[in-house]
Design a protein around this nucleic acid. Structure first.
Lengths: 354, 354
DNA sequence: CAAAGTTATGTTAGCGCTATCATCCGCGGG
DNA sequence: CCCGCGGATGATAGCGCTAACATAACTTTG
């Protein structure tokens, strides 16, 4: 059926050949195969399972493909093989460095293995997450990476019904059926609060913004630590639904002053808030930490450079991304990952602001 | 061939029916069609061209699909229709807020129109960009958004050969065949330098890092402005290939001091560098702007809060993302966009640091 | 030296969807 | 009463690729 080795095809092949790249103008596998004088499947193999093709022929295929500007059609491949080589990744925000660094970890683990990330931003809304999941499931992702554990009922139904491998990032899950990589936000809150207590602060405030589950877990840690010390007082807790920002942190200092708060320390749920607070303290001449101690969370790059430098808790978000992706790769390979719940811990960083 | 209206199928259909969701376990369009008692194409229409299906039937199809957990297979759709509903977006970095905000603008324009972004990070390397393009072309993107104008020859070949609509972001192109949305980086550099000259500074330094084309364009603007004033001096220009960071900005202040530089002002090519410089000046007791003026570029959020606040040039990156995406949408619709070269301008922001 | 691999390649038949062209039905006008 | 028309639905044939099973040409082995 196929003329082998003939450099110049004298007569047209028996079957009527379709014109090259019928619709899109792009060369197809069949076009490359025809040019080389072999069948399409061998071209496929030259790309996907090169070890199955004789080295010489393989090189000839690759060269020909290159010269024809052939690019494999991922949609056709996905359809035929039922593998999309795509992982859906949902994060709450992209302006928050924490998640961007998580993404970097995911990318670094996934790309070398040939997987691509389809990134969705939920804006901290489980409903938005549900909508994104619905959309992204159309791409038949081979795996899913989710942030946190706060999902709608529909999302959970989708996930269990489709049985796509799924790993939850940031928070830890106790459910033995779910996979999770993260650190204990509650412990982080407790760690910082204990530190402040040790330093002698007694009227410690907490500023919670965004009010996502992780922030609330930190608040829990703070509350438990203070309750144990008999020092918890609801009036020193501020809860704001607004997104975290430097501006808001600065505004909180103004508010504390206006409200005549008696805090001798304030634990901000995020470094950018705390940075804003430090900036505003400097403006207003509030001495940190003597007059007011300031603490943050996450250890953003600028926190080591503010005046004074900021005491904070470093979260291993890059590592979380890497490990979550690694776990997912195991699952997609049909292997059971070493552990279904991976706590990567936290690092407390004492600096000048406390 | 198809039994119409029969609620309980008494006899198997004439053709042997494949079992539901043969490989992936997922329901297919045919499954939904069978359940409703219609043909697959009508289900397809109910999703893609709802106005072609009678409202009652359409609702019934949608309900049935929902109850079966049917999710359209994007790969099959893309293959059959030759439209992937995907746009490849290549940015140099994701830790740089500038590009993250550009992405946000792109998303906000693309998602409501049903397009998805496939995001690639080039790490400022044209070679990496070429590799990513090759990978992402496999997804047959309906359009491509690129950052900058510095591409490898191969990249350019790919782009012209495949004739996928492409828009360049950030920098402006004069080539009438290319589409671009951005602002003049050179003008930004000139703007700031002119400002510093007006303020009376005469020994103005420039710190260029990363050395990407945009940084170098700013440097050009700086140089031209100083040359016109007869004040350009190569010894006040620092060129470093390292990525921009607060840390590096701080280190540059140390270096200026160590080198006994005579600068009375330093124009940093990026706000994070300038912020680091301000932090370090504060640490070392260098009075800004009296002893040394500091200027940045891009207007990052923290720049309005440092002590002193930072003079900078705001770039319209969110708008650039939006407009670039809008332009691409036009192209993908086969329409000619209103303009092929869109300059969104810059905003000079004078603050305390100069 | 025949039987049983091994290695390299080919044939066939779909994956799940949509473009394209039919088909069918009811309705108004000549 | 037939024709033509528009609106709703269907049959068919691929899109470009790969899984699964041949096949052919060698190599090994008892």
């Amino acid at each position: 059926m196929t003329t082998r080795g003939g450099d110049r095809p004298a007569t047209p092949a028996v079957k009527t050949r379709k014109p090259r790249s019928s619709r899109t103008g792009r060369a197809t596998m069949a076009d490359v195969a025809e040019r080389v004088g072999i069948s399409a499947i061998t071209v496929s193999r030259a790309f996907k399972r090169p070890e199955l093709v004789a080295p010489e022929l393989r090189q000839r295929i690759l060269d020909t493909a290159q010269s024809m500007g052939y690019v494999p059609n991922q949609a056709a491949s996905a359809l035929a093989s039922a593998r999309s080589m795509t992982v859906a990744v949902l994060i709450p925000s992209m302006t928050n460095m924490v998640f961007v660094e998580t993404l970097a970890g995911i990318h670094d683990m996934l790309l070398p293995r040939g997987y691509r990330a389809l990134i969705g931003v939920t804006h901290y809304s489980p409903e938005e997450e549900e909508r994104l999941i619905r959309t992204y499931l159309q791409f038949q992702p081979d795996g899913i990476l989710l942030t946190g554990t706060d999902h709608t009922a529909v999302t959970r139904t989708y996930l269990s019904a489709l049985s796509s491998p799924t790993v939850h990032m940031m928070e830890l899950l106790d459910d033995p059926d779910s996979l999770s990589v993260g650190c204990s936000q509650e412990e982080g809150g407790r760690l910082m609060t204990t530190h402040l207590l040790e330093r002698g602060y007694r009227r410690i405030g907490f500023v919670a913004v965004q009010l996502d589950p992780r922030t609330l877990a930190r608040l829990d840690g703070y509350r438990h630590a203070l309750e144990e010390a008999g020092l918890y007082d609801e009036k020193r807790v501020w809860r704001l639904p607004d997104p975290s920002s430097i501006h808001l942190g600065a505004a909180m200092i103004d508010r504390l002053m206006a409200e005549n708060s008696d805090c001798d320390a304030v634990f901000f749920c995020n470094d950018d808030l705390a940075q804003g607070a430090l900036f505003q303290c400097q403006r207003r001449g509030i001495r940190v930490p003597d007059q007011l101690a300031v603490a943050g969370f996450n250890d953003l790059p600028a926190s080591a450079w503010t005046t004074p430098t900021l005491t904070t808790v470093a979260t291993p978000r890059y590592a979380i991304g890497r490990h979550a992706a690694a776990m997912l790769l195991d699952l997609m390979d049909g292997k059971e990952p070493p552990q279904r719940r991976l706590d990567l811990g936290l690092t407390f960083i004492a600096r000048e602001s406390t």
